[in-house]
Amino acid sequence: MPPRKHKNKKKHHQHQAQQQQQASPMQSSNKSSPTKMEGNIESCDSTSKQLPFRIEKSTVLGRYVVANRDLKAGELLITEEPLAIGPCVSADAVCLGCYMPVELQSAQYRCSACKWPMCGPQCRGLHQPTGHTAQECELLRTQKLGEALEAIRDKPDLVKNYYELILIVRIFLIKQNAPEIYAEILQMESHSELRKSNTELWQYYEQNVVQRLQRDWGMAVLTVDEIHTICGILDVNCFEIGQNSAKARCLYRSAFLLAHDCCPNTAHTDDPQSYAIILRTSR
Rank of each mutant, 00 (worst) to 15 (best):
177 N>W: 09
246 A>P: 02
215 R>L: 06
280 R>A: 08
177 N>P: 03
131 G>M: 06
280 R>W: 08
264 P>D: 00
215 R>W: 06
112 S>L: 00
1 M>Y: 04
129 P>H: 10
280 R>G: 03
256 F>D: 04
190 S>I: 02
196 K>M: 03
175 K>D: 02
256 F>L: 04
223 T>C: 07
121 P>D: 10
214 Q>A: 14
9 K>G: 07
278 I>M: 05
215 R>T: 12
280 R>L: 07
122 Q>M: 13
154 D>F: 11
220 A>D: 15
83 L>V: 05
12 H>W: 03
94 V>R: 11
140 L>A: 13
270 D>W: 00
214 Q>N: 14
271 D>F: 03
29 S>Y: 09
138 E>N: 11
266 T>Y: 04
210 V>R: 07
57 K>G: 03
144 K>L: 14
43 S>A: 09
261 D>V: 04
27 Q>V: 15
278 I>F: 03
190 S>P: 02
6 H>N: 05
212 R>M: 12
85 I>C: 07
255 A>T: 08
70 D>W: 10
32 S>F: 14
282 S>I: 09
1 M>P: 09
80 E>L: 07
239 F>T: 02
18 Q>M: 10
57 K>E: 11
217 W>V: 03
63 R>K: 13
146 G>H: 03
198 N>G: 00
1 M>F: 05
36 K>N: 08
141 R>M: 00
111 C>Y: 04
170 R>K: 15
115 K>S: 14
34 P>Y: 13
39 G>K: 08
199 T>C: 02
61 L>F: 12
6 H>Y: 06
117 P>M: 08
141 R>S: 00
80 E>I: 05
3 P>F: 07
67 A>K: 06
267 A>T: 02
104 L>V: 08
202 W>I: 05
152 I>C: 08
283 R>S: 04
52 P>K: 04
244 N>V: 01
172 F>M: 11
278 I>L: 06
27 Q>C: 15
117 P>G: 06
43 S>G: 07
251 L>V: 02
221 V>D: 15
71 L>K: 06
60 V>W: 14
202 W>Y: 15
244 N>A: 11
151 A>N: 05
220 A>H: 13
220 A>W: 10
246 A>N: 01
266 T>S: 00
147 E>S: 15
31 K>H: 11
217 W>L: 04
254 S>W: 10
14 Q>V: 00
273 Q>T: 01
92 D>K: 01
38 E>M: 13
222 L>A: 09
173 L>W: 10
13 H>Y: 10
70 D>T: 12
128 Q>V: 05
273 Q>C: 01
257 L>S: 07
82 P>Q: 08
160 K>T: 01
271 D>P: 00
180 E>F: 08
156 P>E: 14
141 R>L: 00
171 I>M: 10
70 D>C: 06
78 I>E: 07
180 E>Y: 09
120 G>K: 06
88 C>Q: 08
197 S>D: 11
46 S>Q: 14
165 L>P: 03
22 Q>K: 13
265 N>S: 13
184 E>R: 12
269 T>F: 09
269 T>C: 11
100 M>V: 03
27 Q>K: 15
94 V>T: 10
255 A>G: 11
227 I>P: 04
228 H>Y: 15
47 T>I: 10
95 C>F: 05
69 R>C: 05
